[in-house]
Design a protein around this nucleic acid. Sequence first.
DNA 1: TGCAGTGTTGCTTC
DNA 2: CGAAGCAACACTGC
Length: 309
Amino acid sequence: MPELPEVTTTVNGLNKTIKGLTIFGVWTDLAKDNPIKQFENTIKSKKFFTQFKKDILNQKIIKSERRAKNILISLSNNKIILIHLKMTGHLIYGKYRYIRKDNKWTPHEKERESLKDPYNRFIHFVIEFSNGKHLVFCDSRKFGKVTLINERDLKSSLHLKNIGPEPLEESFLFENFKERLYKKPNKNIKTVLMDQSVVAGVGNIYSDEMLWLAGIHPESHPIKIPGAKLLLLYKSMKDVLNKGIDFKGDSMSDYRNINGERGEFQNHHNVYQKKDERCNKKNCRGVIIRKVINGRGAHFCDTCQKNYK
DNA sequence: TGCAGTGTTGCTTC
DNA sequence: CGAAGCAACACTGC
């Protein structure tokens, strides 16, 4: 589930594996002659992909970074590969033997025993390095985004310009957090937390978990939440995201790290996908419920998570 | 077996 | 302008 902790885990992995390598080849089966408008400046456009290939071939990987849920891979020619994993994407690094057939990048028979796990299936984009190893982008729903931007355009680029501050930066103070929430005074707090222009990197799982930890109902309105509770939410946000990173991300669904291994955060959920289970909060007798809020499944305990509205 | 549910986000519509 | 809903896609699990 690529939210901030999963993307951080992947980026850490990239910095341990592909840094310093030179790009030798690139392949995708996502490129179309007539992509819909939204994907014109991504590798889903054949025209874009042709240029993309020219731009990245023979370039060296300098470093990888995370911004919100985006992976930024800097190249030696001052261009940056931007990858957004969206719902089901993940990147795996390794030695793949493969055959090309019908423009499908098909791992060789010997590799297939591992293909039962989603980590190694649904390969739609591959970078080959001069050491013979590959970075493969697996993405069953094909929502993921891969594009290229110039380093100098990074901040102004459409992909990043509306992104809010990074919640784990020390410079992101409580006062700033509170101010930003108050700009959406009467929206559901869960929806506000997941709004990337308010704060970067929080998605469905971690928003559920941080609201539970702070004892705030997901349909609370920011303007009605007492200051002390907001401070608790600010701390809970940092705690939950750091815990996600410590457990190397959440693999309840098909997220895998750079080596194809699962994270562990799914084993430490208190509410996400815990419908009908007893609430873990000390002295709480509540039961976790699931309710669709602004189109997303929300999980919470309506006994100990107070609804301020 | 069929259909509801799935981590994200950007576009359209109102 | 903001908010809500849906579309992009394909698979899993009840």
